[in-house]
Amino acid sequence: MTEIEFLSWVRGPGFQIASVIFVFGVIVRLFEILMLGRKANLAEANGSEMSGGVRTIFSRMAPESDTFKRSRFTIVVGYIFHIGLFIVIFLFAPHILLITEVTGVGWSALPTPIVDMAAVITMIALAAVLLHRVKDPVMQYLARMEDYLVWLVTFLPMVTGYLAFHRMGLPAPSLLALHILSIELLMVLFPFTKLMHAFTFILSRWYNGAIAGYKGVRS
């Protein structure tokens, strides 16, 4: 297979397979979770589940001051790489073209040098996250193979994307193909790993806020 055929494959059948698995997997997982349902609460309510749930979806973005003090590294670096990923994934012109092509929805891109900078910062933050995972006793205690796998499949598209944009190391079609392939890997693994949190965090926060809201507590 020549590199251009490799590129054709990842842009064609590869992406097709990956997006089918991604969409299929994510929806199946959400059904698997939501259809379990939960018992109706028979206790007299002291507040609204809905407003508590919706509130917590947003309020969890702003940690309490003590939480911030105690988990400063996790919060700051976590914010950096999440925002960085958002910028790189959703505000880079070529990526928006893809999204627009598939969904019909589009928006304007950030200037490329800003995205480039965001990519570098994101990669540094991700490297710091890995280091934290390896060094911190709690993170180490919690770590499973899956945590490293998830880190890797998040990091790979960043690196390959960066190299592809700057055209370093390999011929351009190979770089672009590897970049797309790494995203396809991410998409395929997404529904079956904790990458799912990108969707389920909304459910979790809602349930958390609803359970507390029912009792009149803002969680």
Binding site: S8, G12, P94, E101
Partner: peptide, 10 residues
């Protein structure tokens, strides 16, 4: 554009 898949993903 090159970033757009060549198959009918949608």
């Amino acid at each position: 554009a090159l970033s757009i898949p060549t198959t009918e993903v949608a």
